[in-house]
Amino acid sequence: MGMNDRIYLIDQMLAERRFVTIPQLLERLEVSLATLKRDLSILRDRMQAPIIFDKELGGYRYEKQDQTSKFELPGLWFSAEEIHALLTTYHLLSNLDTGGLLGGHIKPLLSRLTALLGVADNSIEEIQKRVRIEMMNVRRVQLEHFEAVGSALLKRRRLRIEYYARGTNQTTQRELSPQRLINYRGNWYLDGWCHLRNDLRSFSIDSIRCVELLAAKAKDISEKKLNEILGSGYGIFSGKATQWATLHFTPEISRWVSTESWHPEQKGRFLVGGCYELKIPYSKATELLMDIMKYGAGVKVIAPPSLVDRVSKELNSMLAIYE
């Protein structure tokens, strides 16, 4: 009998009886005392089962619980989607600096996720070795900033922040009405109404230098308008889409790109000869340019002319470095 089967059987015996003695468990499970103690420890420590040894009864039992907090044994096997979700959550939480007020909540949550991922025959270390999620180019976020943003979102209050823009190397004071948090390519962003610019903006949480929760009520923007302005173009700092980019990929690269989702409204088709044509909306070309450049000679920008010119200038600048 495997460990998973034994744990389910122990849970069943404890749920059905007032108490269960050690001899009863050993006889039913057909294991040694050391193995039984290890299984009970896994139930208690990893899976948070409320098991206690009652000296008066001379056996193990579950502590009395109300219906709202009644213990239920979690599934010991996860689907691919569930493993991905658990590991992604684990990595996202691990990437937060665990200082500040939420530190006391993040660490137990990580412990709980570790327990969930380690309830099978293999340990959390074994699962992480066999199923890996590489979070590339992820920037660390200060927990107190993340906490303040989350509080403002839920309480619908404004924020005053000191924001560092890497592109311009400048720091500005902003007052924001936060709208929603987004984790994009492993990094956290805040969509908010900027009262300084009187417009919607996306702010990288890791670029916030100081943050203050204000008493003023946040300005509410409809989800439709948020998606229209910040979700219609390409990339996280998109703005309202104004142009469509047309890209042609070589037959070899097409075998990958044709299965990828670059934008919810993208249009793609195979051309004669095996090339793949991809059309995507964009407003600011910064992020789109980076994604185009990574394919090198495997992609050609067809339209619009402004994007063709920008890619051409970028390639010439790169070439000049090596000449």
Results as ranks from 00 to 15, higher is better:
Asn4Arg: 09
Asp5Glu: 06
Arg6Glu: 13
Ile10Met: 10
Ile10Ala: 06
Glu16Asp: 10
Thr21Arg: 11
Thr21Gly: 08
Ile22His: 05
Gln24Ile: 05
Gln24Tyr: 00
Gln24Ser: 10
Leu25Tyr: 09
Glu27Leu: 05
Glu27Arg: 07
Glu27Lys: 11
Arg28Pro: 00
Leu33Val: 14
Leu36Ser: 08
Arg38Lys: 15
Arg38Leu: 12
Asp39Arg: 07
Leu43Ile: 12
Gln48Ile: 13
Ala49Gly: 14
Lys55Leu: 15
Lys55His: 14
Glu56Ala: 15
Gly59Lys: 02
Glu63Pro: 06
Lys64Thr: 15
Lys70His: 14
Gly75Tyr: 02
Trp77Tyr: 10
Phe78Trp: 09
Ile83Val: 13
Leu87Met: 15
Thr89His: 06
Tyr90Lys: 12
Leu93Trp: 07
Asp97Asn: 08
Thr98Gly: 03
Thr98Trp: 04
Gly100Gln: 04
His105Pro: 00
Lys107Thr: 15
Pro108Val: 13
Leu110Asn: 12
Ser111Pro: 01
Arg112Ile: 13
Thr114Ser: 14
Ala115Asp: 15
Leu116Met: 13
Leu117Asp: 00
Gly118Met: 12
Val119Lys: 11
Ser123Ala: 15
Ile124Glu: 11
Ile124Ser: 08
Gln128His: 15
Arg130Ile: 11
Arg130Thr: 15
Val131Lys: 09
Asn137Ala: 07
Arg139Phe: 04
Glu147Met: 02
Lys155Gly: 03
Tyr163Ile: 10
Tyr163Leu: 12
Tyr163Arg: 10
Ala165Trp: 02
Ala165Leu: 03
Thr168Leu: 05
Arg174Leu: 14
Gln179Ile: 11
Leu181Arg: 08
Arg185Pro: 02
Asn187Lys: 12
Asn187Trp: 05
Asn187His: 04
Gly192Asp: 12
Leu196Gly: 13
Arg197Phe: 13
Asp199Asn: 14
Asp199Tyr: 06
Arg201Ile: 07
Asp206Glu: 13
Arg209Tyr: 09
Leu214Asn: 12
Lys217Ile: 13
Ala218Gly: 09
Lys224Phe: 10
Leu226Gly: 02
Leu226Asp: 06
Glu228Arg: 09
Leu230Thr: 11
Ser232Cys: 01
Gly239Trp: 05
Ala241Glu: 10
Gln243Val: 01
Trp244Asn: 03
Thr246Val: 08
His248Val: 12
Ile253Asn: 02
Ser254His: 04
Arg255Ile: 06
Ser258Ala: 12
Thr259Arg: 09
His263Glu: 07
Glu265Pro: 01
Phe270Ser: 10
Leu271Thr: 02
Leu271Glu: 05
Cys275Lys: 00
Tyr276Cys: 06
Ile280Gln: 01
Pro281Lys: 07
Ser283Arg: 05
Ala285Thr: 07
Ala285Ile: 00
Leu288Tyr: 02
Asp291His: 08
Asp291Phe: 00
Met293Ile: 04
Ile302Met: 01
Ala303Gly: 04
Pro304Cys: 02
Ser306Tyr: 01
Ser306Asn: 01
Val308Ala: 06
Asp309Arg: 06
Ser317Glu: 14
Ser317Ala: 11
Met318Ala: 12
Leu319Gln: 10
Leu319Lys: 14
